[in-house]
Computed example of a mutant assay.
Amino acid sequence: MTAAYTLYAKPGFTSTTIERLCSEARISNRAFYECFGGREELLQALHERCVDESLAAVAQALQEAPDTLDGKVKAGIRAYIEFATADWRRARIMHVEVRRSGEVLTLSRQRAIEAFARLIQDATADFTQKSPVDQRLLALGVIGSLQELLIEWLLSDGRPDIEELAEVAVHIFNRCLGDD
């Protein structure tokens, strides 16, 4: 898994062969297939591990955050951005390779997005009860904006500062949730 963590991040999932994975991990192809059905299954395991760890980090931050909409939004966003960017490989697997892998991670990606949408809805429910907008769809929209900000951080030549990413994401969330 360690070899895949690096290789799937760069050069990327589609460029990483079983032979290269096994060579990097110093294991035989047979040993690989005793653990995984293929490189797709390994990518799914890596993605799900990253998602589970990020959900845990965000949930903890939300639990410790001040009990205000602003406090929850800032804590959740900061926790997610800090977790994702603490290791560029994790951010790349979660936000770039997940999309480039085609159908391989479609269900895993959808489960992750739904889990984050529920987390957002639960954390903001007490503050958004009067909103006329569907809260699930709103959560999906703000998740998409955060994903795009992280993709910009990963792929741009002039990588934005983490603080700037967090500030922009908080602004987007607050505007969408009606807390200017």
Rank of each mutant, 00 (worst) to 15 (best):
A79D: 06
G178P: 01
G144D: 01
Q135K: 11
L150N: 01
Q135V: 08
P11K: 01
D126Y: 10
Q60H: 11
L165C: 06
A4D: 02
A9N: 06
A75E: 02
L119R: 08
A166S: 02
T85Y: 00
R78W: 00
R30S: 15
D126H: 13
E41C: 12
P66H: 14
A169L: 01
V73K: 02
T6L: 01
Y5N: 06
R20A: 09
T16R: 08
T14M: 07
C50D: 00
R99D: 08
L177V: 10
D161M: 02
R78S: 11
V98L: 03
H171K: 08
R118H: 11
S145Q: 05
D87K: 00
H47N: 12
A125K: 07
F127C: 10
L46H: 06
L69N: 13
L7C: 07
T128R: 15
A65L: 10
G37M: 13
P160C: 02
D179P: 00
L55I: 13
G71C: 08
E97K: 08
K74L: 05
I143T: 03
L107D: 15
P160V: 00
R49D: 07
R92A: 06
T128L: 15
A4R: 04
A117H: 06
C22Q: 08
S101P: 11
R20C: 01
T16H: 09
I172M: 00
G158D: 07
K74Q: 10
I81H: 00
F13G: 09
Q129E: 09
V133D: 07
L155F: 02
E24I: 07
R111V: 09
T68P: 14
P11I: 02
L7K: 05
A57W: 00
D126C: 15
N29L: 02
Y80H: 04
L62R: 11
W88T: 10
